[in-house]
Design a protein around this nucleic acid. Sequence first.
DNA 1: CACTAAGCGAGACGGTACGTCCCGTCTTTCC
DNA 2: GGAAAGACGGGACGTACCGTCTCGCTTAGTG
Lengths: 200, 200, 200, 200
Amino acid sequence: MESDQTEPRAAGGGRPRSPRIHKAILKAAVDLVLERGFRAISMDDIATRAEVGRMTIYRRWCNKAAIIMDAFVARVDPGTLFVPARSYTESIRLQMRSMARLFRGKDGALIRTLLAEAQFDARLAIELRDRWTMPRRKMAVAYFEQGIAGGFLRADVDPNAMIDILYAPLYYRLQMGTGPLSDAYVDEVFDHAMKGLGRG
Amino acid sequence: MESDQTEPRAAGGGRPRSPRIHKAILKAAVDLVLERGFRAISMDDIATRAEVGRMTIYRRWCNKAAIIMDAFVARVDPGTLFVPARSYTESIRLQMRSMARLFRGKDGALIRTLLAEAQFDARLAIELRDRWTMPRRKMAVAYFEQGIAGGFLRADVDPNAMIDILYAPLYYRLQMGTGPLSDAYVDEVFDHAMKGLGRG
Amino acid sequence: MESDQTEPRAAGGGRPRSPRIHKAILKAAVDLVLERGFRAISMDDIATRAEVGRMTIYRRWCNKAAIIMDAFVARVDPGTLFVPARSYTESIRLQMRSMARLFRGKDGALIRTLLAEAQFDARLAIELRDRWTMPRRKMAVAYFEQGIAGGFLRADVDPNAMIDILYAPLYYRLQMGTGPLSDAYVDEVFDHAMKGLGRG
Amino acid sequence: MESDQTEPRAAGGGRPRSPRIHKAILKAAVDLVLERGFRAISMDDIATRAEVGRMTIYRRWCNKAAIIMDAFVARVDPGTLFVPARSYTESIRLQMRSMARLFRGKDGALIRTLLAEAQFDARLAIELRDRWTMPRRKMAVAYFEQGIAGGFLRADVDPNAMIDILYAPLYYRLQMGTGPLSDAYVDEVFDHAMKGLGRG
DNA sequence: CACTAAGCGAGACGGTACGTCCCGTCTTTCC
DNA sequence: GGAAAGACGGGACGTACCGTCTCGCTTAGTG
């Protein structure tokens, strides 16, 4: 339905361009988005702030969203998602809390922008799925299957549905702003979802 | 952070303008959004399709999003949300299915667009909350409180959290497209949420 | 060999656009060219000076040269070229002096620019020929033929060659700047050309 | 009024750079100008055609015009302008014919370009005067003074005006294209100018 | 003979102007 | 007297060149 390109300009590679400039642009873009908002800034604003020619940006990215996409991915450490905790399920709760913390901060504003922009830009949607959504879902599916095998989670629930049930509320609040993304909220969602998902 | 106006042009009222033209614009806007996507169309495209002057549109709405907002609200029948069913909780399942059906159709595309655009347009966000989100949430809260009072739902869960747990996954799939918004999916979410929310 | 378009944007006509704005643009363009030189100014400079949007200019002309072309033609009064004088040939001398005076003034700078630019822009060359060169040549040819018929000029010289011999030196000095375009210079060219062109 | 630099990059000298590359650039520039026109080509086009880096060009010349200037001067053999003929004045006619022949060929296109560009580039104008116009004028003045001394030309005409009267029409036709630069035309201008300039 | 220094191609860089598209307002003209 | 038609000021876009710079590679001149 929508289509706005966002093709991966730099994909091919070519000569490795200056990483100093690269970072300056990412920083300028993120700063400006957080200051004024995605819509309010232009490619020229970013170029000016980064003290860079406009072409230098266009050589690397095809639009604002692609820049923010890269900047966002660079910011969030993919690291280990599920750190060990007192128990198997507690580890899930901690992971949810850590995502809520992420959403409360600057990265929350970035992903909010990216999710919205992705609705208008098919290629960005794919990028977002490939570089943010799916990596995390895959790790979560693996962890949940491990939990099912270990008898911590019900065997009759699709791990993908589990993920939706647990994490969708966080995305919902991020975008709707119907309430705070507090740890208390995370616990409420987690506890009552677990009563349904958890075994015994 | 963001701000794009969308002030309620027609709000005040003034003389009631030709409803024939009004509807032609709404239809043109919706048709074009579904055909080409929100971003790809301009106010001029809508005016041309509606065979109307651009000023005639600006007299009524301040931007594309406001038109789609109105069109969307006009399309979805607020009606009774929770129709009677075999049981109290079955009624909730049916309501979720009916929302999933809505999301699968043309209105799904519209609300997807509106939700995304609202991230960049504070006023649209307010409109969307006031005219779509909150009315439904209020009815749901009322229905859920009634369910708590009647002993169908646990008393120790915040009705607002209940709503998030049940409905957020639908919004999540609508926007992420991680899977179909089928009745089976609705059932999966409903059943396992109920095992946690419902009273034994 | 060269080709830079300069197609007559406004040619077709369409709705008659505001003449006030039209003149403001012409004035801004001429003033800027005289102040800073043709190359040194941009379409945006003209738009800014004329307090006008860039599109408003592009709606009427396709480039700087076309604007100056119009402005130049509007400035020079086509009027009667050969005003009566003491004698037939004196009238020619006066006409040459009046053209030298033109070349010494602001219009000289404009036509110098136009002639140069026309070397790079086929369409401008045609416009310049049709709107400046040829009208004057036609009047001169007519006047010279009248002079031949009246026995004031030799019958065995092509009037076109006469024009070249008399006027080319003025253009030459205009562009080369090899010396002043003074009345004395005009007289020198005229007198000695006449000794060859004139009958007895 | 105008000013575009064209400062003599190579003037100082430094180490004499590869003459093979030098000529390749000149040839590429001239070929491209004749093929596509001066405006239509970029420094990059020239560099690509000459299989040379852009810096290699900028080390030698500061802009396109300077390259063409050098190429033009290298092409036209300054040699003796006035070769002996049947008579003193016939030698002038032959010289005019030879210049017309030059103007009809590729060099005509080059000088046409240079003359036009010089209107926008003060330094180029100076170069053109110093390296093309003045050398020829000086030789012509000398030859004409010799003619006056020898009684072949009128003593009461400024040699500089003589030059203008004889040669300006050639430049005029070169730039205006009002007619062919044929030998017949040269003769027409020469004959009738001589009737005014020549003695007896 | 190895070694340094330069000249070179390639092309990224900051920057300016271009010409287009769209926005939201204002004006004209017609029905 | 309201609506279509569209001109208007303004701003962002994405491209093309400009003239400078920085890379490695080659190559010629020197010790």
